[in-house]
Computed example of a mutant assay.
Amino acid sequence: MFQLTRTQVLALVRKSHKAQIIVFACAVLLIATVTIAYNAKTIEAHIDGQTVHVTTIYGTVGEALAHSNLKSYPEDIVNPSRDTLVTKGLKVEVTRSIPVHLLVDDQTFMTRTPAKTVGEALVDLSERYGLQIKDVDEVSTLRTAAVTDQMEIKVRRAIPILVRADGKVIDTYIAPRTVADALTKLGIVLGIKDKVSLPLDHMLVPSEQVQVVRVEERVDTVKSEIPFQNVTQPADYPVGLPDKIVSRGSKGLQEQTVKLTFEDGKEVDREILGQRVLTPPTNEVISRGAQTSISRGGTTINFKRAYVMRATAYCIPGGTTKTGASVRWGVIAVDPSVIRLGENVYVEGYGQARALDTGGAIKGNRIDLYMNSTEAALSYGVRNVMVYVQ
């Protein structure tokens, strides 16, 4: 068999240019392989509950992961961080991000998040995209729910509203919706007759107020008294004297069917649907004086009104009355609020007189009769008399 010695091979290489190139390439490859083998480091990556060993010549964790066979996304959480220098035996924790669809009002984001729950995802995405999602905003899924692959999360920004209902004030936030939908969302059920301060199809705007008035209608049977009437009949005694009761009246009793309307527990209207009398009332009969004339000593005295008065007597010779007239027989003192000054009167037991004077003690139904002597005045004393104002 044909064989070449080492010396022959070297001689052949020196003479062949192509052979020289091959030898040089092999040498470079050998040097590179030795260099790589010397610089290569292995890190331990924990991903999705599995441990994967990654051998790399790159200097940082981020570069090592990016040039490995592992799929890595910018949204993944890497600990220690991606710019950490690779050292031999370094352990790296990778929390995979999940693709989700986020809809905030009229904005749509096709993105990824490493968050485990919807609430955590909203915090992450809100900070990342500057969305300022608040805790009061409405979310289509419970914030405590686990994030799943390709999950759709809808967020509706809430506005402040104030609702008064059932004696309570609900100061809350809610996504824009009609009044009817807002009340349903708050668990407020409307009755057929209930009143709402805004139309049910009205779309709420920030800081709007809604008043719910509960309306209740009830039909009751109510018993009530029927007042009696006063029936007056003329009597044969002077006009002005107190009325006399001939027969006392008594109240009746009636039963009414009433429709009562209440607003928030307060009665605002009542309608009588029907009624019947259980006991009729009895009228009270009163006799009233109708006599306007009397006969005294064969003379007829006509009068407008009669009084029973407390009478006294006085005597002040040469005195002057309130009206400026001189005192004399037939002058009497009266209370002007009862008998006007200047009125002609007839006093039983005294005769014709005229009201021309007043007195400090003469108040109400009292008169003071002038006498011609002190003895006569003292003798008269105090008595009740009939006074007829003509």
Rank of each mutant, 00 (worst) to 15 (best):
P242C: 06
D48W: 04
I159D: 01
G324P: 13
K195W: 08
R128M: 10
G360W: 02
D106I: 09
V118F: 08
A235Y: 00
D236S: 05
T113F: 00
V94A: 00
N283Y: 00
I294W: 07
S295F: 01
G119S: 10
L341S: 11
V92R: 07
I316H: 13
R354K: 15
S287L: 03
L260N: 11
R112N: 05
R143M: 10
Q254K: 15
L125K: 06
Q229P: 06
S337P: 12
L125R: 04
L131A: 02
V139E: 01
V13A: 15
V118I: 05
L30W: 12
K88Q: 15
Q150D: 14
L30F: 15
R156K: 14
T56E: 10
V28Q: 03
V215Q: 13
L102M: 01
T148Y: 05
S16V: 06
I47S: 03
D264S: 11
G191A: 05
G381P: 09
K18D: 14
V104H: 12
I174G: 12
A306S: 11
L90K: 06
V277C: 02
T221A: 09
R248I: 04
V277H: 01
T358I: 15
Q3T: 15
A66E: 13
A45Y: 08
D236L: 02
P234N: 03
S379V: 04
T312K: 00
T323H: 09
I77E: 14
V196I: 14
V155P: 02
E208Y: 13
K251L: 00
T111N: 07
K304T: 07
A376H: 02
T320F: 14
E271G: 04
K363N: 04
I272L: 13
S295T: 15
A27W: 14
R276T: 11
V169G: 02
V205T: 12
I301Y: 00
T358Y: 07
A37N: 13
S293P: 05
A121F: 07
S224P: 01
P280I: 00
T232D: 06
F24C: 08
D149I: 03
P227K: 02
R164P: 04
V92N: 11
K195P: 01
Q107N: 10
K304S: 12
S140D: 12
P160G: 07
L102K: 00
G349Y: 11
A146P: 06
T320I: 15
T172N: 10
I170P: 04
K116G: 02
A19R: 10
V389D: 01
P234A: 05
T232Y: 15
Q8G: 12
V285K: 02
A353N: 08
P80H: 06
V123P: 03
R296S: 03
S68A: 07
A353P: 09
L162W: 07
Q50H: 12
V213Q: 06
R82I: 14
A121R: 04
L369Q: 06
E267Y: 00
T7N: 15
Y73V: 09
K41C: 04
M151Y: 02
Q352V: 08
T300K: 13
E75C: 00
Y314I: 05
G89E: 06
H67P: 00
K223T: 03
G130E: 09
W329Y: 13
V327H: 09
R164H: 03
S247T: 10
Q132I: 07
A19W: 12
E263K: 12
V179G: 08
